[in-house]
């Protein structure tokens, strides 16, 4: 019985996911338009350091960027990838 109600609830959530993603399409488009208009390149997720604010614009030596022994010390650095593939140029 509880199992059945769980399945029903999950189905409802799936429905919610479906309908709300339809509803939020406008929000997504709005954000995408802003990115296009302001020529933005990154998500504003971590504002604590300049290389975590613009992840795709940072380079491989960001962890050492202040001086050769300055290892990564911002918490968000532990979430982001140590080497960003393709940004090695």
């Amino acid at each position: 019985m509880t199992l059945l109600s769980g399945i029903v609830l999950l189905g409802l959530l799936m429905l919610h996911a479906f309908t709300s993603s339809q509803g939020q399409e406008a929000n997504l488009l709005h954000k995408a338009a802003l990115v296009k208009q302001l020529r933005l390149t990154d998500l504003c997720l971590f504002t604590e350091a300049r290389y975590t604010r613009h992840l795709s614009q940072a380079d491989l030596n960001t962890a050492f960027q202040d001086h050769p022994l300055s290892m990564e010390h911002f918490p968000s650095g532990s979430f982001t990838q140590p080497n960003l593939p393709g940004i090695t140029r």
């Binding site: 390149t41 992840l55 380079d59 990838q81 960003l84 393709g86 940004i87 140029r89």
Partner: peptide, 19 residues
Amino acid sequence: RPIIRDEILRTYSSIFNWR
């Protein structure tokens, strides 16, 4: 240092995969 759009997209994709 040119950064192309694909790289930006791939960076985010792999960052969240990694995370």
